[in-house]
Write a protein that binds this DNA or RNA. Structure first.
Length: 272
DNA sequence: CCCGGAACCTGAAGGC
DNA sequence: TGCCTTCAGGTTCCGG
């Protein structure tokens, strides 16, 4: 599932192939993928526009166009953006084809139909209430502390909340909490300054390592060239069903937090 | 505002 | 073999 490291990888690997190119045609194979505006307006406004910049906001990818519009893309759980030189036979589950000049096409493949695209003037029209970027200088331990204090919800749920911090999802929340040695069920308000410092450090370290490894391909994530990432090979607990804690050797436990599979080590991350 | 749960969606995997 | 249930989870919506 694409979270911050996966979207960052997609952005970095798309850029050299699509930057400066112009959309020559748009094929929408499933209308529901276009969130804003109508499918017809989406196509007509996009064709002829040149891609001038790529940026990432949380898990949202934004392609800036010379018209000052932004093509915003969210891959949600099962989406991938795949580059090809042959648009005649898109892979199964392709929902949209972005044809570019120079004979390149970008397929938006998404088996689960959760992914969406927007054509808007400001990326905030697609990504409402996005918290701070965890890898930007603005994200300090103090900022994290401020955003978690007075919150009774489990810290796992809070750091997965895009309005608290942008870009973290289920996998990296589990990884960061393991590295910080914090139980996922602890409430935000119960964390000590030392724990908040460790969590801040763990979030940045976990995300940076995953970006270096081009993202994690547990299910349904492929890089634009079709290759998987390798970040999941270094996971400590995430999706660690049946595995043992790399630190103490005890079995990793699976619980549900807000209906999301949550993996942790009961010994290394004791309940508060 | 805060919290927790449901809904969206479909393929994979497991149980019997 | 095949049907059925469960699981996967990013985001939004809704009720308390």
């Amino acid at each position: 599932m694409p979270e911050l490291p996966e979207v960052e990888t997609v952005k970095n690997e798309l850029a050299p192939h699509i930057l400066g190119r112009t959309f020559t045609d748009i094929t929408i194979l499933w209308d529901g993928i276009v969130k804003i505006p109508s499918v017809e307006e989406f196509r007509s406004r996009l064709v002829g526009q040149k891609i001038t910049d790529l940026s990432r906001h949380g898990k949202y990818l934004a392609l800036a166009l010379n018209s000052d519009d932004l093509l915003v893309i969210h891959m949600k759980m099962s989406g991938s953006l795949l580059l090809s030189r042959d648009s005649r036979e898109p892979p199964k589950y392709t929902r949209a084809i972005f044809h570019l000049d120079g004979g390149i096409s970008m397929f938006f493949r998404d088996p689960r139909k959760f992914g969406r695209v927007w054509l808007v003037r400001d990326w905030r029209m697609a990504a409402q209430r996005l918290g701070p970027e965890p890898l930007e200088p603005e994200f300090t331990p103090q900022v994290l502390a401020q955003r978690l204090k007075n919150r009774k919800a489990p810290v796992k749920a809070l750091i997965c909340d895009q309005s608290v911090i942008a870009g973290i999802g289920n996998m990296y929340a589990d990884e960061a909490l393991f590295v910080a040695k914090i139980n996922p069920l602890r409430s935000g308000s119960s964390l000590t300054p030392e724990e908040l410092e460790r969590l801040h450090q763990a979030i940045q370290q976990t995300l940076r390592t995953a970006i270096r490894n081009k993202g994690a391909s547990i299910v349904n994530y492929y890089r634009p060239g079709g290759e998987p990432g390798t970040a999941h090979f270094e996971f400590n607990v995430a999706h660690g069903r049946g595995k043992n804690c790399p630190d103490c050797g005890r079995p990793i436990q699976r619980i549900a937090v807000r209906n999301r599979g949550t993996y942790f080590c009961p010994k290394c991350q004791p309940a508060g």
